[in-house]
Amino acid sequence: MSETKNFMYLNRRAPYGTVYAWESLEVVLIGAAFEQNVSLAFIGDGIYQLLKGQNTTELGIKNFSPTYNALGDYDVNKIYVEKESLDARGLTVADLLPLVYEDADEDYAEKDSIRVVTAAELAEIIDQQDVVLSF
């Protein structure tokens, strides 16, 4: 791949009931090796993937919520959360993992990766993508 494309991953399902959330995260991490312009959107029940305080010990399965914190290391730092989906679930950004990245252009200052956007704003962002993958 020579030219850089805009890739967006839409995360639309809750984390442990189905395998979609983890599969999406794996694809994002693998895809990061191709150095494309990657962004993530969390929509609908996908919001639940980012909830703080997940603990799967009693389920006996892997808690992959800490892995979202690694996204900054993989240069994935545009993480959009749809406001309408947050509101519908009675959540605010304070309920979500505080995801950050280090901005190489500003002496590695730590910045928030999560941007809460309205459906109308997100629609525009999606429309500008070259590739949209829904999970």
């Binding site: 639309r12 309408e84 629609a123 429309d127």
Partner: peptide, 15 residues
């Protein structure tokens, strides 16, 4: 599923 609802909310005008 919420696919249609979500799509209608997030598909840009003209699509």
């Amino acid at each position: 599923r919420d696919a249609l609802e979500t799509c209608l909310r997030l598909a840009a005008k003209g699509s």
